[in-house]
């Protein structure tokens, strides 16, 4: 269940299908990527996708962070959801990698999430969230 969403548009209703199913059928608009799926397989279809759900079967498996950035770098603007073993202290990194909705397997402590997201005012590196890196602030960005 989506517990946290940072978008104002209507949530897509179509259920996410597997990458193979998505590539086989031309009318699906929601797709789910497992950690070892190739996100670039979706690049030719980005304009018709409303939701990409990226699975985190274990929080230690960080492949989904790269998948998310690859999709955002390619211009994907639809909903990008992290699903599964998603924990409070990962949501900040996930936001930076371009995720804008979260469906954690276990409920989150929303007060802790809020604190975590507000904690770091500055970042060292540009990523998918548009945050301005400190080197840009230092040199009149």
């Amino acid at each position: 269940m989506v517990e946290l969403r940072f978008r104002t548009d209507e949530a897509p209703e179509q259920p996410a299908v597997t990458l193979d199913a998505f590539l086989d059928q031309s009318n699906a608009t929601a797709v789910r990527l497992e950690p070892d799926d190739e996100p670039r397989a979706l690049l030719p279809h980005l304009d018709r996708i409303a939701l990409i759900e990226i699975a985190f079967p274990k929080f230690r498996d960080g492949r989904g962070y790269s998948s998310a950035r690859i999709l955002r770098e390619a211009g994907y603007a639809g909903e990008l959801r992290a699903e599964g073993d998603v924990l409070v202290d990962q949501i900040g990194f996930m936001r930076r990698c371009g995720f804008d909705s979260f469906a954690p397997a276990r409920p989150l402590d929303m007060a802790a999430v809020e604190r975590a997201l507000e904690r770091f005012a500055h970042v060292y590196q540009p990523a998918a969230d548009g945050a301005v890196p400190v080197w840009k602030l230092r040199h009149g960005g």
């Binding site: 929080f59 960080g62 962070y65 990194f93 990698c97 970042v123 060292y124 590196q125 990523a127």
Partner: peptide
């Protein structure tokens, strides 16, 4: 050091 500190993509490497 700066680039790698809290790198959002590379904090859960293999």
């Amino acid at each position: 050091r700066q680039w790698s500190t809290f790198h959002p993509e590379f904090s859960y490497l293999p």
